[in-house]
Design a protein around this nucleic acid. Sequence first.
DNA 1: GTCTATACCTTGATAGAC
DNA 2: GTCTATCAAGGTATAGAC
Lengths: 185, 185
Amino acid sequence: MPRPQTVHDDELFDRLAQVFRIAGFEGASLGALAQGAQLQRASLYHRFPDGKTQMAEAVMRRVRVLFEHAVEPMASDPDVTAGVIETGRRLSTIYGDGELACVLDTLTLSGAPESVRAIAADVTNVWIGGMAGAAMRGGATPEAARIAAEDAFAQLEGGLVLGRLLGDPATFRRAIDALPRLLLG
Amino acid sequence: MPRPQTVHDDELFDRLAQVFRIAGFEGASLGALAQGAQLQRASLYHRFPDGKTQMAEAVMRRVRVLFEHAVEPMASDPDVTAGVIETGRRLSTIYGDGELACVLDTLTLSGAPESVRAIAADVTNVWIGGMAGAAMRGGATPEAARIAAEDAFAQLEGGLVLGRLLGDPATFRRAIDALPRLLLG
DNA sequence: GTCTATACCTTGATAGAC
DNA sequence: GTCTATCAAGGTATAGAC
C-alpha cells in the first residue's frame, strides 16, 4: 500500500498560491515554496515533475476554479443585485478582506512562463465576463457592460495595490461595497 | 582627472526602474539590472555600495521626483480642470500610455526592504495628496476629496494590471480620460 | 569610473534511501 | 510519497587592474 499524500492537491495549491501571490514567479524560490507548502523541495518535484512552471500553472488553474465559484451567483441568483453582493462577499474572502495581493497581478511579472500568463488571462476573462453578464442582466448594453466590468476589475485590483502600499484595505473594501452600483448603475 | 561617469544619475535610475518595474525586487537580478543599465555588475556596486537595496531606494526617490512633477499642475494651474488634464498627460507618459507596469506595485512585493516600502508609501501619498488637493479646489470636502483621490489611484493602478493581463491598455487610458470627472465630479 | 576575475552562497533540479 | 544528500548553474558581492 503506497504512502498516502500528507497534503492534498487543493490544499497544496492554496499554500503555493500564498507564496506566489506575494513574491511573483521569479521571486518565489523553491525554498520559500517548500516552506509555504510544508513539504521538502524534492517532494514538490515529485508532485510537479516539471518544476516551478508546473506549480504556477496548477495554482492558476486552482484560482480559476475559485473565481468561477465567486462569479457564479451573479449569473444564477434570480435577484441580480443579490447575486452581485454575494459575489462581492466571495471576492472579499479570496483576498482576505483586502489584506492579500492578487496572484493575477504578481504572477504575470517578469519571468512568468507564457503558459501561466495564458491561464491568468483566461481567469481574468472569466471574472470580467461574469461581471459583464451581471451588468447586462441589469439592463446595460454589451459594450457598456464590458466597460463597467473592466472598470470594476480595475477598482478592485487597484484597491489591493493601494492596500499593500499604505497598509489600509479601505479602498478595496469600498470597491467591494460599490460593486452593485458599478455594475448595475 | 578622474574618469567621467558614462551614465549620469537620473538616466541610470530610470534604466534601473525599467528593470525593477517588470521584475520586482527579488525578481530583479543584478545581471538584469546591469544589462538594463548598460553597466557591469561591479560598476553598479561602485555607484551603489550597499547593493540592490540602495539601487531600489534611489529608483524610488527618483520616482518621487517624477510624481511631484506630474501632480504639480493640479496645484498650480489657475484652471483646476486644465491642471488635472495636464497631470493626466504626465501620468500617461510615465506609464508609456498604459503599456508599462507601476514600480509602486511591483517593488513592494515580497523581498522589498522596509526602506523601499517607506519611500513607496511616501510617493503614494504625494500622488494621492495632489489629487485630493485638486478635488478640494474643485469644491469637495477634505474627506470626499481623499476618497475620490484614492479611488482614482486605484482605477489607474488597476488599469495597468488589467493592461498587462490582457495586453490592452484601454482601461488605463479610460481612467486617464476620466480623471477630471473622478476628481472634480 | 569602469572593467575582468573571483569568492561564496542560494537556487532549481536530480538521485536514491526509506 | 516524502525524505536526505548532492550537483551544476546562477545569484550577490568583493578585489584589484587600468
